[in-house]
Design a protein around this nucleic acid. Structure first.
Lengths: 109, 109
DNA sequence: TTGACATATTCCGATATGGGAATATATTTG
DNA sequence: CAAATATATTCCCATATCGGAATATGTCAA
């Protein structure tokens, strides 16, 4: 076997930095392909290919308007990622809390 | 160019489902390699290789105890992932709120 | 030292990748 | 219809991957 396909799930799709850039750029507002091309300074075919991957895993949706295709983020598709990371974020906070606790103990000496 | 290396960052490292399984398993308690092998029913070399990737990106840390190596999660290394996904989680909640709002408007008719 | 146990590394092969270049498709306009 | 604009697809290739199998390294115990 080789590495899992980029379209196998959201985790694999967002592993590519350019795809995260695209998602960031269209997060607040739907954007056409050429707007993405201009903003991120990527080749148009490259952007279309990345969008295809994002669409296959449900991270973006698109609608046509004239000759343009307008892409928008489907926030809910990132949910599994957020949920998974959140369990570790809790750990991270606990660790911080412990460090703080210890620091306060020391300062009591 | 090909796909970015799995060791290029946490996003790529975590794209592999088995590596997430490993992180989940050792999240609450540090574990030896053989405990991971037994729990996840993977080959030992496979586990060692996955752990190496996770270690290279700082997602796990290890210490030796006798012949065993005990691995633990470094929660803070998942932070960037959590932060990135959080921005979209906010969007997701907004969308939900809108849906709810509309549903309430309708029920007022 | 030798053997047993625990883990890490190396070599292999099939596979999917992302960028570049070229081209195809779709839509509007004249 | 033809030309122009916007986007999508295809082909090629260098590269990194994951699993499997075999082997190497490290540590303890007798």
């Amino acid at each position: 076997m080789a590495r899992a396909s980029t379209t196998s799930d959201a985790f694999n799709a967002v592993a590519e930095p350019r795809r995260r850039d695209i998602l960031n750029f269209i997060a607040m507002q739907e954007r056409s392909v050429s707007e993405i091309v201009d903003a991120l300074e990527l080749e148009q075919p490259s952007v279309s290919k990345h969008l295809k991957v994002l669409k296959e895993v449900g991270l973006v949706e698109a609608r046509r308007e004239g000759r343009q295709m307008l892409y928008r983020v489907n926030g809910s598709a990132i949910r599994p990622l957020w949920e998974w990371t959140s369990t570790f974020e809790r750990m991270w906070r606990h660790q911080l809390a412990k460090v703080k606790e210890n620091a306060e103990k020391k300062s009591d000496l």
